[in-house]
Design a binder for these strands. Structure first.
Length: 242
DNA sequence: AACCAGGACGTGA
DNA sequence: TCACGTCATGGT
């Protein structure tokens, strides 16, 4: 309870260093995969919180937030790259392109039928904003945008201080003993923001670090606890030591 | 060859 | 409210 979440972030930052989310296609270098990150080819910008710099980048993040629902990031990147290749990674293009063609491009990201529909809905919504920052309640009214997607959009596309709770967060916090396993999305979000302070840069890093840690050590099936940087904080110490 | 992946929605109890 | 089935491809 008391300060476990804050201590966790401190340990994760020391272990993995700054993450620099959200990954952007425009930041992909030709030098290949970044060995310090597990999820993306690269596209991160550690230490630079000035992204997104353009409306195109902002919209790319929004599309990524939809496409990554229950889907591994490398698959999402394939979909985003395909959209860009076909020149349909803009609100106008997505609005004016048939759902079938969008579905064809985003196929590797899975659920391509409903995601194509959701991309069209949020493209319309984005255009209607005219550059204004959306409210969370507005985002939640969109079909296909639940609490996590809404918070991801606010935190990474609009730099609003909203903590993102995902399956990784719940798993890590639950194993640590920082929350009860039945805790709701909003409960986890509130205690996190309370312990971490409501600061955009901190919350961007916090979520990214949790994702990285879940992929490296706190895996669902076979967690590797032996070299876990959180071992001394963890209630389920040594679920798997081998 | 199951199992999992940076969820959300519709349905019925 | 809430548990449960559904949506789908691709990597391990």
């Amino acid at each position: 309870m008391s300060k476990k979440i804050a201590l966790t972030q401190k340990s994760l930052l020391k272990e993995y260093e700054l993450q620099g989310w959200w990954p952007l296609l425009s930041l992909h270098s030709s030098s290949g995969k970044n060995p310090t990150k597990t999820g993306s080819l690269n596209g991160y910008h550690p230490g630079d919180y000035s992204y997104p710099k353009t409306e195109n980048e902002r919209f790319e993040i929004i599309c990524g937030a939809i496409l990554t629902q229950n889907t591994a990031w490398p698959s999402v990147e394939k979909a985003l790259i395909a959209l860009k290749e076909k020149d349909i990674l803009s609100p106008k293009a997505i609005t004016s392109t048939p759902k079938e063609e969008i579905g064809k491009a985003i196929r590797p990201a899975g659920y391509f039928n409903q995601k194509a529909e959701r991309l069209k809905l949020i493209a319309e919504f984005f255009t209607g904003l005219n550059g204004r920052i959306p409210k969370r309640s507005e985002l939640l009214k969109l079909n296909g945008v639940g609490p996590e997607t809404a918070d991801s959009i606010l935190l990474y596309a609009y730099s609003q201080p909203e903590f993102v709770v995902d399956a990784y967060t719940k798993r890590i916090y639950s194993r640590l003993g920082a929350i009860k396993s039945e805790a709701s999305y909003d409960e986890i979000k509130e205690i996190s923001q309370k312990e971490l302070t409501r600061n955009t840069k901190i919350l961007q890093e916090a979520h990214a670090l949790l994702v990285e840690h879940a992929k490296r050590h706190c895996k669902k099936k076979n967690p590797s606890c032996t070299e876990c940087p959180l071992l001394d904080l963890c209630e389920k110490k040594g679920v798997r030591l081998s």
